[in-house]
């Protein structure tokens, strides 16, 4: 792991983790990810959807997610993100280390930590 990753690990990782977890369930486009995060946090996480994209681009650059254009359920063009093997490994490896933060974030977001 590079030093840059170390530096970015904690604060940015929180959102990264939420995205990775969302994608764990299957491929999803940006708006879908935003909605999923928002709904799973029962509307508490009123973050701007736009702020999702720098995180997605970062994950894509690191090779943790991959993206391809496709057609959504609404019959519209959408850019779908999927978890890569590297991303899945990353998610597992980092889960323990980030457990404390996820617990904390879960509290904030009102998600039952045990259910995660």
């Amino acid at each position: 792991m590079s030093t840059q990753d170390e530096r970015e690990a904690l604060p940015q990782g929180t959102l990264d983790l939420l995205i990775l977890r969302t994608l764990e369930l299957g491929r999803e486009h940006g708006q879908g990810i935003a909605r999923a995060i928002q709904e799973s946090s029962e509307g508490v996480l009123l973050v701007e959807h736009g702020s999702l994209y720098p995180a997605l681009q970062r994950l894509e650059r690191r090779g943790w997610v991959a993206a391809e254009w496709g057609i959504s359920a609404n019959n519209r063009r959408a850019r779908f993100y999927i978890l890569t093997v590297k991303g899945r490994r990353q998610l597992e490896a980092e889960t323990g280390r980030w457990q404390r933060v996820t617990d904390a974030v879960s509290r904030v977001l009102g998600v039952d930590p045990a259910g995660g």
Partner: peptide, 21 residues
């Protein structure tokens, strides 16, 4: 590097999906 147009396309898609919802 992704092109600007590509990202614009993605943002537009996002907005349309959100509006649909």
């Amino acid at each position: 590097r992704r092109s600007r147009v590509d990202i614009e396309e993605e943002v537009r898609s996002h907005l349309e999906h959100e509006a649909d919802a």
